[in-house]
């Protein structure tokens, strides 16, 4: 999911940084100072989840957990994901520093999107409507990955119009991964709703 250094044109880089700056500013404004440690925890989980591979058929994949992070953090996903990606770039050279703006947009924008669309359904559903919450969590996890791949493809297309087929291929490659991410989001949400429902209440100021 990370776009590497060298791929994007200055225009695409600038677009990425602009969207990220706006998202981070809004996210920081909405963030409850008292709950900053919870944002840091979610950011760390995002960082660590991508270091663990799970076996998928003959291959293996690492999950990004964009959907669950979005459902937990809402708008604060922007600063949380920016921080995690900065640390990944600094410690492991995943992605890069110059493409940090684009990579943050690629992962944080879908997280905010699923929060706006599915957040209420996941948080609001009581024990009786666990199936609704589960379905919403699955869709959130799944669509977040597809949206993320779509935005990554758009950045490539913006850099070079002839990369249209490359962008479409990236989208197709992420289709099986989106189902796995959806399943992970479903199990994680069910688990958190049973054991730690408070964490799904968000970190934003009321």
């Amino acid at each position: 999911m990370h776009i590497s250094e060298g791929f994007l044109s200055p225009q695409a880089l600038a677009a990425g940084w602009t969207i990220t700056a706006a998202g981070v500013a809004w996210g920081l404004k909405k963030m409850d100072q008292e709950k900053i440690v919870r944002v840091a925890m979610a950011s760390s989980v995002f960082f660590l989840a991508s270091l663990v591979n799970i076996r998928v058929g003959p291959s293996s994949a690492h999950l990004a957990l964009i959907g669950p992070i979005g459902l937990i953090l809402g708008w604060t996903a922007f600063p949380a994901i920016l921080t995690a990606l900065l640390l990944q770039a600094v410690l492991f050279q995943f992605g890069g520093i110059l493409v940090l703006g684009a990579n943050t947009t690629v992962m944080a924008a879908p997280a905010v999107l699923v929060y706006l669309v599915f957040g209420q359904a996941v948080r609001g559903a009581g024990k009786k409507n666990a199936k609704i919450a589960g379905a919403a969590a699955f869709l959130a996890g799944s669509l977040a990955v597809m949206a993320s791949a779509g935005i990554a493809g758009m950045f490539l297309f913006l850099s070079d119009r002839e990369m249209a087929l490359t962008a479409k291929t990236i989208l197709a490659v992420h289709l099986p991964l989106s189902i796995i991410e959806g399943a992970a989001a479903l199990f994680m949400t069910i688990f958190l709703k049973r054991t730690f429902p408070d964490i799904l209440s968000g970190v934003e100021r009321s």
Binding site: V45, V52, A183, M188, F191, T195, F196, I199
Partner: peptide, 22 residues
């Protein structure tokens, strides 16, 4: 283990880590 059980184990592991470390 892979597949759906691996995915569930991973999701529960992340959730448990989050709760324990919170």
């Amino acid at each position: 283990s892979g597949g759906i059980s691996g995915c569930r184990a991973f999701a529960y592991m992340v959730g448990t880590t989050l709760i324990h470390s919170s």
